[in-house]
Deep mutational scan, measured.
Amino acid sequence: MIINNLKLIREKKKISQSELAALLEVSRQTINGIEKNKYNPSLQLALKIAYYLNTPLEDIFQWQ
């Protein structure tokens, strides 16, 4: 199972779901689904999230 800290990191950086979704060219619902662990992002999307949040990938997504 993958645990993610996306919501915590996104809120710490004061970025809304809508703003992050626009940067990543995905829907706000996609961001919401990832934050709620409804599904895991593709590797490409995970890397883009880490890039736009300027945060190491392993700080956002962790195996458990």
Rank of each mutant, 00 (worst) to 15 (best):
I60D: 00
Q17L: 12
L53H: 01
L47R: 13
K38R: 09
S18H: 12
N37S: 11
L47M: 14
W63T: 04
K38Q: 15
Q64R: 07
L6I: 04
Q17N: 04
I31D: 00
L45Q: 06
I49C: 05
W63H: 04
L47Q: 12
L43V: 10
L47V: 14
S42I: 04
N5R: 11
K7V: 07
I60F: 03
L20R: 00
I34P: 00
I2Y: 12
I9Y: 12
N4W: 02
Q64I: 08
E25L: 11
K12V: 08
G33P: 01
I31N: 00
Q44N: 12
L53Q: 02
L20P: 00
L24W: 01
Q44H: 14
L53G: 00
Y51P: 01
I49H: 00
S18R: 12
R28W: 15
L57K: 03
P41H: 02
S27N: 09
A46R: 06
K14C: 09
D59Q: 14
R10C: 03
L53T: 04
K13R: 11
S27E: 09
A22P: 02
N4S: 04
L8K: 13
N32C: 08
Q44T: 14
N40F: 12
L23V: 12
S18N: 13
K12M: 14
K36D: 14
L20V: 03
V26W: 02
P41R: 01
I31T: 01
E58I: 07
N32P: 03
Y52F: 14
T30P: 01
K14T: 06
I49M: 07
S18Y: 13
P56I: 04
K7C: 06
P41L: 07
R10L: 05
T55M: 08
A21I: 02
M1T: 07
Y39A: 10
L8T: 15
W63S: 04
E19I: 08
E35I: 02
I3F: 11
F61Q: 01
V26S: 04
S18V: 13
S27I: 03
K13Y: 09
E58K: 11
K36P: 01
L57Y: 05
K7I: 05
I3Y: 08
N4I: 03
M1Q: 05
T55H: 08
E35D: 02
L6W: 00
D59C: 08
E19L: 09
A21H: 02
S42W: 04
W63V: 05
S27Y: 03
L23K: 12
I34M: 05
Q17T: 09
K38C: 10
F61S: 00
I49A: 05
I3K: 13
K38P: 02
M1F: 08
N32A: 13
W63E: 04
L6K: 00
L45M: 09
W63F: 08
A21R: 03
K14L: 13
N54E: 13
I9W: 07
E11R: 11
E25M: 12
Q64M: 11
I60E: 01
L20N: 00
I3R: 11
I60S: 01
I3E: 07
I9P: 00
S42V: 04
S27V: 03
K12S: 14
E58F: 09
I9L: 10
N54V: 07
L24A: 09
V26P: 00
Q62T: 09
N5E: 04
G33C: 11
A46K: 07
Y39Q: 11
K13M: 14
L23N: 11
V26C: 07
N37R: 08
Q64E: 15
Y52V: 15
I49T: 03
L20C: 02
P56T: 06
I9G: 02
W63I: 05
N37Q: 09
Y51C: 08
P41D: 01
P41I: 10
T30C: 12
N37V: 03
S18W: 15
Y39W: 09
L23R: 11
Q64C: 09
N37T: 05
Q29R: 13
S27Q: 07
Y39C: 09
I60R: 00
K48Y: 05
Q44C: 11
V26N: 02
V26D: 02
E11Y: 07
L43S: 06
Q62K: 11
V26Q: 04
N32Y: 11
K48W: 06
I3H: 07
E25S: 12
A50N: 01
D59S: 10
Q17P: 06
S42T: 13
K48H: 06
R10Q: 01
L23S: 11
P41T: 04
K13E: 08
I2R: 10
Q17F: 03
Y39K: 11
I31Q: 01
N5A: 05
K12W: 11
N54L: 06
W63Y: 06
S42R: 06
E35T: 01
A50S: 10
A50W: 02
I60V: 08
T30I: 13
G33W: 13
Q44S: 11
E11W: 08
I49E: 00
D59V: 09
E58M: 08
K38W: 15
P56E: 08
N40P: 13
I2D: 05
A21T: 03
L20W: 01
N4C: 05
T55E: 11
L45N: 03
L53N: 00
I34W: 06
K14M: 13
L47G: 07
S16H: 05
Q44W: 12
K36Q: 15
L8S: 13
E25Y: 10
Q62L: 08
L53V: 04
I3T: 14
R10F: 02
I9D: 01
N40G: 15
G33I: 08
Y51T: 10
K12N: 12
L47A: 11
G33D: 15
N40L: 13
Q64S: 13
L8Y: 11
L20Y: 01
E11P: 02
L57W: 05
Y39L: 13
L53D: 00
K36N: 15
Q17H: 04
A50D: 00
L8C: 09
I34A: 02
Q17R: 09
T55W: 05
N37K: 09
S42C: 06
A21Y: 02
L43I: 12
L43H: 11
E58V: 09
S27A: 07
Y51V: 08
K38I: 14
M1S: 06
Q44I: 12
N54D: 13
F61E: 00
K13N: 12
I3V: 14
I15F: 11
L57H: 04
N40S: 15
N32R: 15
L47F: 09
P56K: 08
M1N: 05
I9E: 05
A22G: 11
T55P: 01
L8N: 12
N4K: 02
G33N: 15
L6S: 03
M1L: 15
N40V: 15
N4R: 02
K36T: 15
T55I: 07
L20H: 00
N54P: 00
P56V: 05
A50M: 04
K13T: 07
K7G: 07
K13A: 13
Y51H: 13
T30L: 15
Y39G: 05
